[in-house]
């Protein structure tokens, strides 16, 4: 279990995830998607969930809203405390009053996130009618305002999703998510499916909207560049676990887990003369057949005998920095980084 950092335990904590375990059942195999994940978020913070595809980042986000497909997904145990109340224990109507209202989500693929047979304006107006209890006319007026906020002209509100480009669709989805001033925004790779030029636009828009309303955000991405720009805290996810957690500075300046170090090593460095990229050897483990002990040890260049046994505890480093590795000192010495 992750050792709490006592200073963070105050009323500023918006979200607190404790020991989350999520499994998928498929063809009689159990896929361990999320394994004992713990982290906290303060109000106004932006947390970056970083990791390879399939690490479990989206599952974590969807668990917070409890919108995992059930079957085959099952939240086995854990607590997700939002403003002190456990989401996993909430009943229907309470949960629904949070979704789209206090916590909302932007999904990865804009092409399929919108309902093809409902007009775009109505899809946004929906949220107003549900949570602000507005009547249809007022809701549609507010919806148009949201569209303009994200840069879509008002006269397009009556159009259908297929009439918009990918980037505009994503902006609609963002408008939908931010409509009711959520306290927490879950953004699942919101720009991955978009062109690079549009990516910058969309990110800027999310950032400025966030600033205006002091929205907290969990940003899921595998792009370290975006993380560096936008996030305050970073959680590195591997095989369903958070193997390293800390502030942006802590992670970027003093990465401690061999995987994190490997991630940065895989980035091309403009300053130095690098002939080849340095990707991490091997592939992520099969989530239905996870290795014992440290999940990263099969690929880890610094692995020791005892890495293959027992559960890996999180080790406290400076400040908010934690890391799931027993040998960080040795690793640091070898890699030449500071702990």
């Amino acid at each position: 279990m992750m050792k709490e950092n006592i200073e963070e335990q105050d009323a500023e904590t918006l979200l607190s995830v404790k020991d989350l375990v999520v499994e998928y059942t498929s063809d009689n195999r159990i896929i361990h998607a999320v394994n004992n994940v713990c982290f906290d978020m303060k109000r106004g913070e932006t947390l970056g969930l970083v990791g390879e595809t399939g690490a479990g980042k989206t599952t974590i986000a969807k668990s917070i809203l409890r919108i995992l497909p059930d079957p085959p997904a099952k939240i086995r145990r854990g607590e997700i405390l939002f403003n002190g109340k456990d989401i996993l224990k909430m009943e229907g109507s309470e949960l629904r009053s949070i979704r789209g209202h206090k916590i909302s989500m932007v999904f990865q693929d804009p092409m399929t996130s919108l309902n093809p047979v409902i007009r775009v304006g109505s899809q946004i107006a929906d949220v107003f009618m549900l949570h602000r209890k507005l009547n249809k006319r007022d809701a549609e007026r507010e919806a148009v305002k949201m569209l303009e906020l994200v840069g879509i002209p008002a006269d397009r509100a009556r159009e259908f999703p297929h009439q918009f480009s990918g980037g505009m669709k994503q902006r609609v989805v963002i408008a939908m998510a931010l409509a009711c001033d959520p306290e927490l925004l879950l953004a699942d790779e919101p720009t991955t499916a978009l062109d690079v030029t549009i990516q910058a636009q969309v990110l800027n828009m999310i950032s400025s909207l966030k600033e205006e309303k002091n929205t907290s955000m969990i940003l899921i991405t595998h792009d370290l560049g975006i993380v560096a720009e936008v996030c305050d805290k970073i959680a590195v996810v591997y095989a369903g676990e958070i193997i390293e957690f800390g502030s942006k500075e802590e992670i970027f300046l003093t990465p401690s887990h061999p995987y994190t170090i490997g991630l940065f090593g895989a980035l091309p460095d403009l300053d130095s003369d690098v002939e080849r990229l340095d990707p991490i050897d091997g592939f992520p483990p099969d989530p239905s057949d996870l290795p014992d002990g440290c999940r990263f040890s099969p690929r880890c260049p610094h692995t020791q005998e005892d890495c293959k046994e027992g559960g890996m505890e999180s080790v406290q480093l400076h400040g908010t920095h934690t890391c799931r590795c027993r040998h960080i000192n040795r690793v640091a010495a070898k890699e030449g980084s500071y702990v």
Binding site: R99, S104, D109, N115, P116
Partner: peptide
């Protein structure tokens, strides 16, 4: 039922009945 826009509707806070019949 498996499609993304149904998940979106759920994430917006719609009830299951509404999702079924309207979306």
């Amino acid at each position: 039922i498996r499609s993304d826009y149904v998940t979106t509707a759920r994430a917006k806070g719609h009830s299951e009945t509404t999702i079924l019949y309207k979306h």
